[in-house]
Amino acid sequence: MAVVVVVHLTAGSGVGFLPLISLGPAFAGLVGGWRRTAWIGGLALALTLGLGLYNDLLGHRRGATALVSVGGVTVAGLVAAVMRQRREAELANVRSIAEVAQRVLLRPVPLAAGPLRVAVSYTSAVADARIGGDLYEVVATPYGVRTIVGDVQGKGLEAVETAAVILGAFREAAYDEPVLTAVGERLEQALYRHVRTTEKFVTAVLAESGPERAMTLLNYGHPAPLVVRGDGSATFLPPPERALPLGLALHGAKGPVPHTVDFAPGDQVLFYTDGVSEARDARGEFYPLGQRAALLRAANPQVAVEALRQNLVAHAAGPPHDDAAMLLLRYREDEPATGDGPASDSDPAVGTGPTTGTGPTTESAPVGRFRSGG
């Protein structure tokens, strides 16, 4: 508006720039509230009226056209601003309800459980995504610290519902069942009741770490976890036999065989979904996760996972095509030689991490337990 006034005064009224003052209330209606739009519109009308009197245009068609243009655009801007503010308020209410529901249904991941430190990172392929088909949970039970990381087939609300079923069954079975294979059977039964005869399935890996400084793994067709030893060496932990994902027991295949690996102070195990291992760069090459194990050497496990996430995003060089969830379990090096049992629910070391999110969503230690995408 100031530019239009200067041009009008220097170039003269014959240029016909006066109606362009209506750009002020037009832009105000796009970005401001109705009060600001009304104020800018009133200022535009005052400037138009003043310049019309200064150049003696009010008695001519050009001056009347300028006044009508500014007045009409101001009214249109007010209507647009009111409608936009109403839609923004409705969207804010919906998001608030979704966040509250998520916090009620999904407990935060603990930062520590027994002798283990926990870190989580999540990168969503969908802008502003909050919940979906990538799932993970860590619980300290009388039988040890038990973990699940999984990926539901498909996307959308059906994937969210399936992930909720798996997580609910895991939280109950992890405390009730003394054997990890029995936990897996409970998950299979819960998923069967949910999907019945459909082909919905969930790849998942279950882990149990107790005071004996070993970790037992049960892999349902999920990518093999990556173990990084205290000396810096890294290797994957494939199951002794391949097994079908959860939900495909109707095909008559036997369940996975549990296998135990050493897990001592200074060691750490990274669980992840296929959004990490199958991320491709511009040349179509997969993300070399095993070669990036050195990024997990940071003293703070959350910093280590965040460094790995940033490297993954740089490798993809663009928006991710699939969700990428990572969960890191680190055996604390300062743990006494006798070892401690798992933390109880009242353990003061158990906490929650901060939550951040943008679109595409990137989170470190998110409040949710499962995320968008399959």
Rank of each mutant, 00 (worst) to 15 (best):
A299C: 09
L327K: 03
V303Q: 01
Q310R: 06
P319T: 14
Y287F: 10
H315Q: 07
P288S: 13
A293Q: 04
P301L: 02
N300C: 09
V305E: 00
A325D: 14
Y287D: 12
R309W: 04
H315I: 01
L296W: 01
R297A: 11
A294W: 14
P288R: 08
L308H: 02
G318R: 15
D322W: 10
L296Q: 04
R309P: 04
P301F: 01
H315N: 03
A317R: 15
A293W: 01
L308V: 13
A314C: 09
V313I: 13
P288H: 11
Q291S: 07
D323M: 02
A298L: 02
Q302E: 14
N311Q: 06
L327S: 04
A316Q: 15
A307G: 12
R297N: 07
L327T: 03
R309A: 08
H321V: 10
Q310I: 09
L295A: 11
P319Y: 07
P320S: 06
V303L: 03
L328P: 04
V305H: 01
Q302N: 09
R292M: 06
G318K: 12
Q310M: 06
Q302V: 13
A304P: 15
A298N: 05
A324W: 01
V305P: 00
A325M: 15
Y287L: 06
G290W: 05
L295N: 12
